[in-house]
């Protein structure tokens, strides 16, 4: 079994067992539980929990802003998101000490979230975290791939950082590397890793769609099937396309029901 899956699965199980034995009470606990909901892809639950705790938790404000910005577990609302990010940055830009705090400040600088974009500042912060924070390593990878923030394009360096992000359990990093490499199937040097990661993700999306059936959950499932499994032959790709069609249909059905 892939090292990534073993460790990621271990992390989820640990949190699951913790929450089976604890009830979130304080703001910090309720924020932590929202992170757990997010981890297991129960995005709607995460948003509900974040809304309830955002006034008491600055980290919850960022998380909620992120959900509104990208329409995760809620309708996209960039105005609302920017306001939340602004409030986050007002408090945190000089006071970020913990890794995750610094990462979020870097994200705000990098993408102009609640503050004017400052690529140099973002890059400096991501670089300081690149060996320990999966998200930071991932952002470095994207920066090298796209030549963002005046870093200078380098596919080679992007590859190094995608792999680092994967080792640091950033989900999707190995898939991004696979994409960057041109989706070469079995010729991809980390084919076994991408195969495991892809299957694992299909499993996670399937479980989330079962537990919280909604348009978003089925859309995610449909999209990953539509992409096709790395290295599959035509027959395999066609079987996956059939599944994608089925799940797009389900997503449309839910979207109709979810219309305000």
């Amino acid at each position: 079994m892939s090292d990534f899956i073993n460790k990621h699965h271990g992390k989820v199980i640990e949190e699951t067992i913790f929450w089976m034995e604890h009830e979130p009470v304080s703001a910090a606990e309720r924020y932590r539980h929202s992170e757990y909901s997010y981890l297991i892809l129960h995005y709607k639950d995460a948003v509900t929990e974040l809304e309830a705790v955002a006034e008491e938790s600055i980290m919850a404000k960022y998380s909620l802003g992120y959900c509104y910005y990208y329409g995760i577990g809620t309708m996209e609302n960039r105005n609302k998101a920017q306001k939340l990010f602004q409030e986050f940055m007002e408090k945190m830009k000089e006071k970020a000490f913990a890794e995750e705090e610094k990462y979020r400040v870097a994200m705000c600088y990098g993408y102009g979230l609640g503050i004017s974009a400052d690529g140099k500042e973002a890059l400096e912060l991501f670089t300081s975290l690149e060996n320990t924070h999966g998200g930071a390593a991932y952002e470095k990878a994207v920066a090298y791939q796209e030549g963002k923030w005046e870093i200078g394009k380098s596919k080679e360096k992007a590859g190094v950082f995608y792999l680092k992000a994967h080792e640091l359990l950033y989900e999707g990093a190995i898939l991004s590397l696979y994409e960057m490499d041109g989706r070469k199937g079995k010729e991809f040097p980390y084919y076994e890793e991408v195969k495991s990661a892809y299957s694992y993700l299909i499993g996670r999306y399937t479980l989330a769609a079962r537990n919280q059936p909604c348009a978003d959950a089925y859309m995610r499932l449909a999209k990953i099937y539509e992409e096709g499994f790395p290295g599959d032959d035509r027959e395999g790709l066609d079987r996956f396309l059939e599944k994608a069609k089925k799940y797009y249909e389900k997503a449309r059905g839910f979207a109709q029901e979810e219309l305000p």
Binding site: S2, I5, H9, S199, Y200, G203, R204, T206, L207
Partner: peptide, 8 residues
């Protein structure tokens, strides 16, 4: 890998 994700 799928089973691990599905039972995560």
């Amino acid at each position: 890998a799928y089973l691990t994700g599905k039972n995560v």
